[in-house]
């Protein structure tokens, strides 16, 4: 694999930390890795990215918001002009939307949520979960370029270089960009806690928690004692108790922290799909037969409303 283009996600101010996974994956495959950043006023973000790879920036006011049709158009042009054979990003909603569309412009040889790879007989073999993680599939992509999104938990960012790589600014012809989509607003609920995909410990709550106050008090309280992120099952997202960004699972986020603590979560396949590769899993559930225990290393049968305060108290005291 020669030329690899890594698409980096950012929030307008800093790189999304999970973007490092895509660079780590790309580096395992090639020495010719270039990072691509789109947006407006990219100076500081490009400098951050240049610690990991040479950077190309498409920096233009018409790209100030990450609107899929525009961004995919630019990504496609850059991929073609760079003769990229492989395009990589970390699997997030941003990548699914924008990189997915880019792949649709570049011939559709795409694999999502890749968790592992190997090169056999010169062929890049990729592994990814299917059927809510019940199946691990091995596949190869036919055609070029190949587009791959990797699970953030599956690959680590490389170490930053002492001497930064070069940054090159590309010209953007705004007159050729699609204009059928207009960004209106983003209601960004940025909490003080780490992102669920980027934390070493995730404390997750399920339907056992009756309302947002209880979730914050028990799940949030325990997470804060552990410096952890909070996550939740779909049941709480559906009930409006937790925001969508906390949902772990097949149709939410796939996480694999050092420790996943499941509090009052039954362990539906769709939830397991998002967390079963965590290093250590512990569960508290009042039902001794809850399926979550089959996927846990440690289980405590009990009432979360009683056990979680005990955990918080003991951690607080120690």
């Amino acid at each position: 694999m020669n030329k690899v283009l890594v698409l980096l996600e950012h929030d307008g101010t800093t790189l999304r930390p999970s973007s490092g996974s895509a660079i780590g994956f790309a580096r395992e495959l090639s020495d010719e890795v270039t990072a691509l950043l789109l947006g407006e006023d990219l100076g500081a973000i490009a400098a951050e990215a240049a610690k990991y790879a040479p950077v190309l920036t498409a920096d233009h006011e018409s790209l100030s918001q990450n609107v899929a049709d525009r961004w995919a158009h630019v990504i496609t042009e850059v991929a073609r002009s760079q003769n990229a054979e492989l395009i990589v990003a970390t699997s997030t909603t941003w990548a699914k939307d924008i990189v997915g569309r880019s792949a649709g412009l570049l011939g559709g040889a795409m694999a999502s949520d890749v968790t592992d790879h190997e090169i056999t007989d010169g062929q890049l073999r990729l592994r990814r979960p299917m059927f809510a993680g019940a199946v691990n599939a091995t596949l190869i992509l036919e055609g070029s370029p190949k587009i791959i999104t990797v699970c953030p938990s599956a690959y680590n960012a490389p170490k930053p270089a002492d001497i930064p790589f070069l940054i090159e600014t590309l010209s953007v012809d705004a007159s050729t960009l699609p204009s059928a989509t207009r960004f209106e607003s983003l209601d960004c609920k940025k909490g003080a806690r780490p992102d669920v995909t980027e934390a070493h410990i995730v404390v997750s709550g399920g339907r056992a928690f009756k309302n947002a106050e209880d979730f914050e008090k028990y799940v949030g309280g325990l997470a804060d004692q552990l410096g952890a992120a909070t996550g939740s099952s779909r049941a709480l997202v559906d009930a409006g108790i937790t925001p969508n960004s906390l949902q772990v699972g097949q149709t939410g986020k796939i996480v694999a922290p050092e420790l996943y603590l499941a509090l009052g979560i039954s362990g539906a396949v769709q939830h397991l799909a998002g967390m079963k590769n965590s290093r250590v899993i512990a569960a508290i559930n009042q039902d001794p037969d809850a399926p979550i225990f089959e996927f846990a290393d440690y289980g405590l049968v009990g009432d979360v409303y009683k056990e979680v305060p005990r955990l918080i108290e003991e951690l607080n005291g120690s």
Binding site: G107, A109, G133, N136, T138, L139, L141, D297, L311
Partner: peptide, 25 residues
């Protein structure tokens, strides 16, 4: 565009140790 080479069923590799108190956990 995608050639599936094989599939593997994933089952839990874990055995759960049940503890009885928060302290033990």
């Amino acid at each position: 565009r995608i050639r599936l080479l094989g599939m593997e069923l994933i089952d839990s590799q874990r055995t759960c140790e049940k503890v009885t108190t928060a302290t033990d956990l």
